[in-house]
Write a protein that binds this DNA or RNA. Structure first.
Lengths: 337, 337
DNA sequence: TTGTATGCGTTATCAA
DNA sequence: TTGATAACGCATACAA
């Protein structure tokens, strides 16, 4: 087969008209059993499957879910995208994953609209954006009936959307009470500024430390959130007069950078925490205490919203917060005298 | 705008027929400057961009490249996919990325044909498969004119395809000569069996050890290639009578598992090498000697094949081998007496 | 150079 | 119930 069979081929083989054959795949009950069997048989013999895109060109009825992953390289994002795909498939809803491409613009990161536009051209029934995008404007002027769910980030810019994400306050409360129990009173925070979730996480940290009566140092890393900037910020923080005994990091990557610096210094006395609980954090030599975002639940809640109209309508414009967990490891096990 | 403008809208606004407007976007020189300007102006005012899929439904001329990533979670794959996308975009060729979904079947991993079929339905001009798939059969019966390039894996099953991948022999030669220089004579290999690249890598290892007069132990991990299986195999290997002084691993993940085990044992005397040089290998606390696959060159060569017909024709059916590099780190720095 | 007609694979509308 | 026909958004052979 050098060419895919079309409904035309199936109809010809079954000896019916194209329209009759088409109806067999849309509403099977509307065609007589005898003909239905003939069509179905012809379809399997030819290996016919409907062309979803020609279909969606004509009508938006058999909609699919367009999944947009903000960043391929973030394992958290791909994990949720994968889980969502499976959950939707189990409901018979098919989805198509595309990655957003974020390019360097004159002032900061810019969202490349092209791949998103291409996905939109496919006429999805609903959209699932996984991860924070520099800009949600491509989704601002969508046809009314398209539902938008944003995971792991805020959907504040989009009044008609729903966001599913981790409860930052709960997360930082877990971290700080753990550190407090271990006797830490001087704690630092290292993380980026500017992005919404980042600000929120830092504010949540500050609130949590206050409720535990801790002394706080904040050190920003601009917008970067990788190891290099983590190490750099750690250098500044540990150089302070009364250095902190614990460093709370925006995410695991930043924490790895902090660990790198401490390792080079031969300093094993400072506690470090991460966020995301990537599998790297669990490696014996890293052993980083970290916040586990409940990806399974985030994916589940998102899929309910994506597939059920009434569920979506009930929570449009809100943020659904998911409870995180703290995974404690060697990086915070020592107790301060 | 609750609905995207079509070429029809543009034509109406510019006061020309639909076809004239269409020609402006396909071969602009075939239309008079005055009308062209009018059409272009109308298009920008309306925010019109052609619907790529309706276009590719009608004709395969303005083809795009379909990129299929075997596994989202492999950073090597996504890195190459991303690089390819950028390179192609620079040539004005647009690409669309989809992830293959690999599900558990009755006997082993099975490739879910659906997402691939969906991508194929979009009628790509050529296909870029990044990473090894359990099964290349969905690409066996493609229309003749579709070029297929496979990166990081063999395309042996597909006579009409080209494969671009790392020279395994060169890689293992680098590893073994490095270990030999450090005085190692007893070396073990830990890696999966069954998959083509895996077999090839192991065979390359055996050849390289022979040329350096080393004693070899091979320990397989079935088809798994993660930390858990690495640790397990390491347990068996190190329990041997004359345990090896160095362990060469199929990839970084397996090596991390080996490191985990050695760490738990408090054994810092055994050298370990990985493969892929993931960024984790560079973390101070891991510091794993590893093979760096030249992803940039792999992406470049692949894109040449994807976009240039004559280049592709010249090397169809062959494997293009890319030279790797060895990045040496603390895990192999010690010298054996 | 410009417009008309037709088809890509599918579904929706209408007669029969 | 079934089949002919138009349309989705676009490109192209052809005629004007």
């Amino acid at each position: 087969m050098t060419k895919r069979p079309t409904i035309h081929d199936v109809a010809a083989r079954a000896g019916v008209s194209k329209s009759t054959a088409a109806v067999v795949f849309s509403s099977p009950d509307d065609v007589s059993p005898a003909r239905r069997e003939r069509v179905l048989a012809a379809a399997t013999e030819l290996g016919y499957t409907p062309n979803a895109w020609a279909r969606s060109l004509r009508s938006a009825s058999r909609g699919f879910v367009g999944i947009i992953v903000a960043d391929f390289h973030n394992p958290l994002f791909t994990e949720i995208a994968d889980a969502a795909r499976q959950l939707l498939a189990a409901q018979g809803i098919f989805s198509f994953v595309a990655s957003a491409s974020i390019v360097d613009g004159p002032d900061g990161k810019i969202l490349d609209r092209e791949p998103i536009q291409h996905l939109l051209d496919l006429k999805p029934q609903s959209l699932f954006v996984v991860g924070g995008l520099p800009d949600l404007s491509p989704f601002a002027k969508l046809p009314e009936h398209i539902r938008v769910v944003v995971a792991l980030s805020s959907a504040h810019e989009l009044p008609g959307a729903v966001s599913v994400r981790t409860d930052e306050s709960a997360a930082m409360e877990l971290v700080c009470s753990h550190l407090s129990e271990r006797g830490h009173t001087q704690v630092a925070y290292i993380g980026p500024v500017g992005r919404r979730v980042a600000e929120e996480r830092r504010d949540a940290f500050v609130r949590a430390t206050h409720s535990h009566g801790m002394d706080v140092v904040i050190e920003s890393t601009d917008t970067a959130m990788d190891e290099a900037s983590g190490a750099e910020a750690a250098e500044r923080v540990t150089g302070l007069d009364r250095g902190p005994t614990a460093i709370v990091c925006y995410n695991d990557n930043v924490a790895f950078g902090v660990q790198n610096l401490l390792e080079r210094r031969g300093d094993r006395g400072v506690a470090v925490t991460g966020y995301d609980n990537t599998y790297i954090a669990g490696l014996e030599r890293i052993s980083l205490t970290s916040i586990e975002q409940n990806t399974v639940e985030i994916a589940q809640r998102s899929c309910e919203l994506l597939s059920d109209d009434s569920v979506f309508a009930a929570s449009v414009g809100t943020d659904i917060l998911i409870e995180p967990e703290l995974v404690t490891r060697a990086s915070t096990l020592a107790v301060i005298a």
